[in-house]
């Protein structure tokens, strides 16, 4: 614990905890721990490093028309890095997809719009209050940015994470349809709720409020998807 200059490590709950607010990710604790109790996930890359790593697979992208997806977390939280990376990849003729919640400034969207081929946009809820309760996200930013992307004829893929107790009723489906139709969007991807996050929360020492909720299978979403399809919105489940 004393290895941490920021005082981010504590034993308050009886097990070793790391306070993410204080942690700077310097890695001193990992190097000092004799028992391997702390580990780092990920490593830092420069834009150059990422580009050269990506270029290794260029033949595959050229053949398939595939490319690179920036996802998160929220990509826009590292905006400068992301913007530079997108610009560089565009120069190499590599397609770029960006996954975002769109609760970001429109200036940033504007800056990226020419270098991004596909926007993967989560739609977690159609109702502002519910959205706020579930995500704390800004709905107005979201709607404004989405409108902007649609207006500019960007390739937008709407992804709806279907979560039990949050947005998974047939009624919800009807409302999603209305929302999409307002924007003139005619397809969406449904992502069935899964429990892959549980372990991550545990490792980060956070409580997981969906603990014990059963994952959804593809077939569980048949009725939900049917609502969209009846309204001429093309659906892909999982992706």
């Amino acid at each position: 614990m004393s290895a941490c200059r920021e005082g981010a490590l504590n034993f308050r709950t009886g097990t070793l905890q790391n306070d993410p607010q204080r942690c700077t990710g310097c890695g001193d604790c990992v190097r000092h721990c004799l028992n391997g109790a702390i580990s780092f996930y990920g490593r830092e890359y420069s834009v150059d490093e990422v580009v050269s790593e990506v270029l290794k697979d260029k033949p595959f992208y050229d053949k398939s028309g595939g490319g690179v997806t920036l996802s998160g977390g929220e990509v826009f939280l590292q905006f400068d890095f992301a913007a530079e990376l997108c610009r560089r990849l565009a120069l190499e003729n590599i397609a770029v997809a960006v996954e975002s919640s769109l609760t970001v400034s429109s200036k940033q969207i504007e800056k990226l719009i020419n270098h991004v081929d596909i926007w993967l946009v989560d739609l977690k809820h159609y109702d502002e209050k519910k959205l706020l309760s579930g995500t704390g996200g800004g709905f107005n930013d979201y709607k404004r940015n989405l409108k902007q992307l649609v207006k500019k004829n960007c390739d937008v893929i709407i992804r709806i994470p279907v979560i039990p107790g949050f947005n998974h009723t047939l009624e919800d489906a009807e409302q999603f349809v209305v929302f999409l139709q307002d924007f003139g969007i005619s397809s969406a991807v449904l992502l069935p709720f899964h429990q892959y996050g549980e372990k991550k929360y545990e490792l980060l020492g956070k409580s997981y409020f969906m603990k014990g909720t059963a994952r959804l299978r593809e077939e569980d979403l048949a009725g939900f998807a049917g609502v969209f399809e009846r309204n001429n919105i093309q659906i892909q489940i999982g992706g």
Binding site: P59, F60, D62, K63, S64, G66
Partner: peptide
């Protein structure tokens, strides 16, 4: 994707 992977391997690599 698998098909593209195999084709790239043979055609380009």
């Amino acid at each position: 994707k698998l098909s593209m992977l195999i084709r790239t391997f043979f055609d380009d690599l």
